[in-house]
């Protein structure tokens, strides 16, 4: 399989902005901790996660990158990590190198991992659809435009990613997924202003994911993020019975609702109302029957009047 890009992409620690003074304090605090007691060049005992998290569990741990000027965050949220799909892994399963010195000297520099390093094996790769994802990723605007350092981890935080997250309420899914995009794009543009073409912009941005409009149809190609000019602009793409949201944002929810309440109820009882999409087949039938019945009724009544009048007027 072609895992070229996936295997070549390197791990990058998620970033966040931090106050400068907090950083200085955090670094000072971090350096004041004794590390694993080893001397340089002497193999040390393999550290446990708790040892790493003594420093990396501090939200203020990070530094300002001299090249980009950005703050690089070394914080790992222990709570989120332990709940994540990788939460049972030891830190050193992925992070190899000499951690007895500061700054650490990880093997191959700071960014040296890819999904494909661990996610190997035909069955696993097939189950995770990694080959298809890799192909989609190659078509993504981020790859096409050679965005520096863009890789799997730019969007998927291995310390927090959890497959079950996609089953959460859509508002949470939207907030989390859009947060990933906004992490970079908020700095690049006035997002809401750029999307003024969409009515009720703020509500739309809070209700659907960037990916729902910025990836091709159907939703199975969610990793092939397209350039802005090719974004979905047709209202009916979402606001219709065959809404693309059913293959994207609501894909898992719909499946879960169907299993819980059956196909019709699953659609009907969806937790969110989207005009044109969330339609009750029985209500639709009721409406058509009601208005159709009224039309038929007046036609019959009118015809009856016409015949009755003709008969009365006959000499």
């Amino acid at each position: 399989m072609d895992m070229g890009r996936l295997t070549s992409v390197k791990m990058r620690i998620p970033r966040m902005r931090l106050g400068g003074s907090a950083l200085v304090m955090a670094m000072t605090f971090a350096f004041s901790f004794p590390l694993m007691g080893g001397e340089p060049g002497v193999p040390a005992e393999e550290p446990q996660n708790g040892t790493c998290l003594r420093c990396h569990g501090m939200p203020t741990l990070g530094y300002q990158d001299p090249d980009s000027g950005k703050f690089i965050n070394f914080y790992v949220d222990h709570e989120k990590f332990s709940r994540s799909d990788h939460g049972r892994q030891g830190c050193v399963v992925c992070h190899k190198g000499n951690f007895t010195v500061l700054p650490h000297q990880p093997e191959g520099g700071r960014n040296h991992h890819s999904c494909g390093d661990c996610h190997t094996g035909e069955k696993l790769v097939q189950r995770m659809r990694l080959v298809g994802i890799a192909a989609q990723f190659q078509k993504s605007v981020h790859v096409q435009r050679k965005v520096k350092g863009f890789d799997c981890f730019s969007c998927h935080n291995p310390h927090e990613s959890r497959l079950e997250n996609r089953m959460r309420a859509e508002t949470d899914v939207v907030r989390r997924d859009n947060g990933v995009c906004l992490n970079c794009h908020q700095e690049m543009m006035a997002v809401e202003e750029k999307h003024q073409v969409i009515p009720k912009t703020g509500m739309h941005l809070a209700a659907v994911r960037c990916l729902d409009c910025h990836t091709p149809r159907p939703g199975s190609v969610i990793h092939a993020i397209e350039p802005a000019q090719r974004a979905e602009r047709n209202c009916v793409a979402c606001h219709s019975r065959d809404s693309i949201l059913l293959t994207k944002l609501y894909k898992y929810r719909l499946h879960e609702s169907e299993q819980r309440a059956g196909f019709i109820n699953g659609v009907v009882l969806s937790d969110y109302y989207v005009i044109g999409m969330t339609r009750h087949p029985l209500l639709d039938a009721l409406g058509i029957l009601g208005v159709g019945g009224a039309l038929l009724g007046v036609l019959i009544h009118g015809a009856g009047r016409w015949f009755a009048t003709r008969r009365r007027l006959k000499p």
Binding site: N234, V236, A237, H239, S240, R241, I275, G276, M277, R279, D284
Partner: peptide, 9 residues
């Protein structure tokens, strides 16, 4: 709006 249909609006 309700019976929104891209093919027959």
């Amino acid at each position: 709006l309700h019976f929104s249909d891209p093919d027959a609006p």
